[in-house]
Amino acid sequence: MRRITAPVTARAARALEAGDQVFFSGILLTARDQAHLRLCEYLRAGKDLPVRLQDQIIYYCGPAAAPKGRPVGSCGPTTSARMDAYTVPLLKAGLRGMAGKGRRSEEVRRAIRKYRAVYFLAPAGCGALLARKVTAARRLCFADLGPEAVYELTVRDFPFTVGIDTRGESIFHRRTKGVFHEKK
């Protein structure tokens, strides 16, 4: 099994192919619907982002609160497609990739190719399993959003599957038997 560590350089990303199973270690930044809305407002207004995105991976996740003695609670991925409309500006701002569950829009797939980014699939609905692999968590910004705030998770050996690689190859795209077409 391939291993990869964040921050992910362009070179490390290029080595990944759609369908690869990888163990991911290092930093993941959590952000979901409302945080995306805000990050994109920053960019539209030409303001500096409250987090550095260069070579980072955004994980579409709103973790459950940490039980006593643990860095974080259940922390599986949420549906990536809801973030489709906000993804391209973030890639443009230097983001190296995203992790979540399910299909992406054709626009996002093209942008992933253009910006040499990568889209990972996390094991969907396995938040308890993933929580065991988080070694530290701290909130970076948007505290008022509660679980939807941006957290920095330090993880060890997160089991990801490469969903879309830097060439824009998608595991959902490659299977041609009917259901695996991209989301319209």
Binding site: A64, P67, C75, G76, G127, A128, P147
Partner: peptide, 13 residues
């Protein structure tokens, strides 16, 4: 893991 750690099976509770 959920049962042993008493962590929710899914974060979407």
């Amino acid at each position: 893991a959920a049962r042993t750690d008493k962590v929710a099976m899914c974060q979407d509770t």
